[in-house]
Amino acid sequence: MADIIQIDDVSYAYHDNIPALSRVSMGISEGEIFAVIGSNGCGKSTLLHIMNGLIYPPSGRVYFQGKEVSEDSLRDRTFLKYFRSSVGYVFQDSDVHLFCPTVFDELMFGPLQLGLSRDEASGRVREIMAMLEISHLQERPSYMLSGGEKKRVAIGSILTMNPRVLLLDEPMNGLDPRTKSFLIELMILLNDAGKTLVIATHDLSLISELRCRVAVLSEDHRVEKIGTADEILQDEDLLLRVNLIHEHVHYHGNHAHIHIHSHYLFHRHDRKPDDVDS
């Protein structure tokens, strides 16, 4: 299937001297779930900002359905409207994502921007609120919501625009287990409905659950590897190198073990020679 988003040799630095991305290239097919993983500060959020046309790379190019996404192309009203309605971005920090007085206004903002009538927009909003189980919050201001509720509202505010692509920046951060499993089910459901999902995360369990294609960013802001979830999760050397798992010492009774450790997937005790008596 053709790439819906294409990134070609993109580099980006903040304030011209703090590198965030270095010669990054990748293609995302329509209808797939694609994850960008890497340790903190490797450039995942910056890459999503670039994919969403919020910042523009000084070198390299970004394409959406074959058309370049640039400062110039986004001045064209036709393309801007099409691009913004097609690509939705759920920010990592829900506090910056939610900027309307109430939850209802928040969900109405996108469809009204698209030029939908108030009736049609409010119909969409009610359906999305029902799906996300937030109908009872509609008159609440965003600052009176819990972390999980804010995340649901943030996702809802994008879904009411019915985008083709959803960019999700660390969607699981700071959420309780029930909200996490709700979101995973939602992501699978949206993908089944034909949506393309691009997820920036360092949560390996999420990759494991979604069984998606994965790009690994290294700590020097390059693409280290692109592959299936299985290929990536089985490559322990790679995950160690990019700081997504680490060697870990812990105790079982009076025995200390050293083994590869991730808080999500790896907790094996197959390094017998390293076992030491305490």
């Binding site: 009203r77 409207k81 939610l98 900027f99 996108g110 921007q113 505010s157």
Partner: peptide
């Protein structure tokens, strides 16, 4: 950025 990402016109 959050606002910009959801604005489709002037």
């Amino acid at each position: 950025f959050a606002r910009k990402s959801r604005l489709v016109g002037m």
